[in-house]
């Protein structure tokens, strides 16, 4: 048997503190009596998530279906720059952007709504 074996086989014992078991049991009881973790509000989240996804899909679908590169008039760069044009709303990308903003707004409202105490909801 080498020195290493002999020394490692003869590691000294340490005694746990007198209140160690009590401390552990205190924590165990605390854990056992703690209220269960708050469940994720799937009931509220799912309809909103499905609505958002549907809106987004419809918007993307519309954008793809209406996309026609030949229909976009080639204009000089200077004419494309004006920030907002009513004609812009007819572009598929604009529809998609509006749908996206709408989805984000609904999601934000949902989070605000979910943060309210349940008694204020019902």
């Amino acid at each position: 048997m080498s020195d290493i074996d002999r020394i490692l086989s003869a590691d000294p014992v340490i005694e746990p503190s007198a209140n160690f078991a009590a401390r552990v049991m205190g924590q165990v009881r605390e854990e056992a009596t703690a209220p269960p973790p708050i469940e994720f509000p799937w009931r509220r989240f799912l309809p909103v998530a499905i609505t958002c996804a549907a809106v987004l899909l419809i918007a993307v679908g519309l954008a793809v279906a209406n996309f026609d590169p030949t229909a976009v008039p080639v204009q000089p760069e200077a004419e494309l720059l004006p920030a907002f044009d009513v004609a812009l709303l007819s572009q598929p990308s604009a529809i998609a952007a509006i749908a996206l903003i709408g989805s984000l707004l609904v999601a934000w409202l949902a989070t605000r709504f979910a943060a309210l105490p349940s008694r204020e909801l019902f």
Binding site: D11, V13, I14, E15, P16, F20, V24, M25, V28
Partner: peptide, 26 residues
């Protein structure tokens, strides 16, 4: 839950000592 105390009492020595062999700090 109180039955867990038996397990703690029985195994506190071995588990503290095993931990000590890892960290060398009581």
């Amino acid at each position: 839950i109180d039955a867990f105390e038996s397990i703690v009492e029985r195994w506190q020595g071995p588990l503290v000592n095993l931990a000590y062999r890892y960290c060398r700090n009581r």
